[in-house]
């Protein structure tokens, strides 16, 4: 009897699928990684000035926090659809949507970290002649780093999951493999891509945990999440 072909039998777990489509899987995974990475990095770059703005007083805090929270309630499907007229079918569209979502978690965490800096520490630094820029970069930011990194971990893990929805515009990393496979009931492809996606999130989380340990050796606690993630 001939060897049983799991691709023909449409099995859930199929090693033949993984080997024969390894190029496709690698490309999708790489796309997933760069979309997630770019989104989180841009999110961090935007969240720090936004948090600094929100810290200037209630006049700024209310619109910044209100707007980033409001963005979070927009369903991901609607977000990507609404950005379509602006960006067309491109990865920029997906990255923009993911950046907007990541801001909710990141701005809150940066702000919480900055506000948790003890007033005595700031007074002491000012007394030593620190200007506001030096105070920010050498005293406040390092002390706010644990909260920032805790936010980065949450944002990264939820962004990895949300990237799959980008498949609606054909730029969803591993989601691009899941969407067409649903129509053709290709079990191995759906399962493999889904498992890779979860693994990606877990690996990213572990890597960031390592970064957290290296950058902030004074905190052993992992920090409490300030906001919950968004479902994809």
């Amino acid at each position: 009897m001939a060897e049983r072909n799991c691709l023909v039998a449409n099995d859930w777990i199929c090693w033949d699928y993984v080997t024969s489509r390894s190029q496709e899987l690698t490309d999708a995974t790489l796309e997933h990684i760069w979309i997630t990475g770019a989104s989180v990095l841009i999110g961090i770059a935007l969240s720090v000035p936004l948090a600094l703005l929100a810290r200037r007083g209630r006049r700024w805090a209310a619109p910044v926090l209100g707007l980033t929270t409001l963005l979070y309630t927009v369903p991901s499907l609607a977000m990507f659809s609404l950005l379509l007229p602006v960006f067309g079918l491109s990865a920029t569209l997906v990255v923009t949507g993911l950046v907007l979502y990541s801001l909710t978690i990141l701005v809150r965490n940066v702000l919480a970290g900055l506000e948790a800096v003890p007033a005595e520490v700031k007074e002491a630094a000012r007394g030593m002649g620190y200007g506001s820029a030096r105070l920010l970069w050498q005293v406040e930011m390092p002390l706010a780093l644990p909260a920032l990194l805790a936010g980065v971990r949450i944002a990264t893990v939820s962004t990895v999951a949300l990237t799959t929805v980008g498949s609606i515009v054909g730029k969803g990393g591993l989601g691009n493999l899941i969407a067409p496979a649903v129509n053709t009931s290709f079990k191995a492809q759906v399962l493999t891509a889904s498992v890779l996606c979860v693994l990606l999130a877990l690996v990213a989380d572990l890597l960031l945990l390592g970064v957290q340990r290296v950058l902030t050796p004074w905190t052993r606690a992992t920090g409490r999440p300030a906001a919950s993630g968004k479902g994809a």
Partner: peptide, 23 residues
């Protein structure tokens, strides 16, 4: 459990159910 839940895309779970007999 909520950290783990965050890592699992709803779209992927839904897709898995849609290629199972549940569809």
């Amino acid at each position: 459990i909520s950290n783990i839940g965050r890592a699992v895309p709803v779209f992927a779970v839904l897709a898995l159910f849609m290629v199972s007999p549940l569809r």
